[in-house]
């Protein structure tokens, strides 16, 4: 490994740690929020279904950077709380990726044919049971590939947090570069690191999907 990297390794590793933590929070929070939004829309829940639609449409029309600024400056001003850059960006990623994940989950839900729903109802299951036991598990399985590609997108998006001063991988790399001025080595290593993590993430997605496919 090049000297410039070795010398700054602890600092870069803490940046990598922040990247992974941001991605993790975004994945967990975004998946939970996205799934709720998708279910509200799919079941056409009065009012809340409409709100979910409006939310996904609005968020998908906002650039990620603007979303982070909103979470860093606008929301704290509006609701009167203080927010560090890390918390603000974590919130931004959750809110941002949730809208995209909601769309993926919703198309998974819509892909389940109505005959299965009728079959469940015909055995006396209540609509909520049919949804929980029959529709949802299959929809989740089908959603795995598109959802994991959203996770991969999110992982790369975390680099935008450097703009509001979060020392994640890209932010740390830029700081090291400002001191050492070895852009080729530093940025190549940074890019490779993202590539490796993204590949691992896609690999997990493929394995998970293959595991679930056996059963369908």
């Amino acid at each position: 490994m090049p000297d410039v990297i070795l010398k700054n390794l602890p600092f870069l590793m803490s940046g990598l740690g922040n990247t992974l933590l941001l991605a993790f929070i975004g994945i967990v929070g975004g998946t939970a929020t996205g799934l709720i939004l998708a279910i509200l829309r799919h079941l056409r829940v009065p009012v809340l279904g409409r709100v979910a639609l409006l939310y996904t449409e609005i968020v998908r029309g906002i650039p990620l950077l603007v979303m982070l600024f909103i979470c860093y400056f606008a929301l704290p001003a509006l609701f009167g709380y203080r927010s560090g850059a890390f918390q603000a960006s974590a919130l931004g990623f959750v809110l941002f990726i949730a809208a995209y994940l909601a769309e993926e989950f919703r198309s998974g839900l819509r892909s389940i044919r109505t005959g299965l729903e009728q079959a469940g109802l015909a055995t006396g299951l209540r609509p909520a049971q049919v949804f929980r036991l029959i529709i949802l598990p299959q929809a989740l399985r089908r959603s795995v590939p598109p959802v994991f590609s959203q996770y991969v997108r999110l992982l790369k998006f975390t680099s935008v947090a450097s703009v509001i001063g979060v020392s994640e991988l890209t932010g740390s790399a830029l700081l090291v570069n400002a001191r050492e001025f070895e852009p080729v080595i530093i940025l190549t290593m940074t890019a490779l690191t993202y590539l490796v993590i993204c590949s691992i993430l896609s690999f997990i997605g493929r394995v998970l999907y293959a595991q679930l496919q056996i059963r369908t």
């Binding site: 005959g115 009728q118 079959a119 055995t123 598990p137 059963r215």
Partner: peptide, 13 residues
């Protein structure tokens, strides 16, 4: 009331 459908509709999972 039991019902059997044209396209089986077994739960595939």
């Amino acid at each position: 009331i039991g019902m059997v459908f044209q396209s089986f509709e077994l739960y595939p999972h």
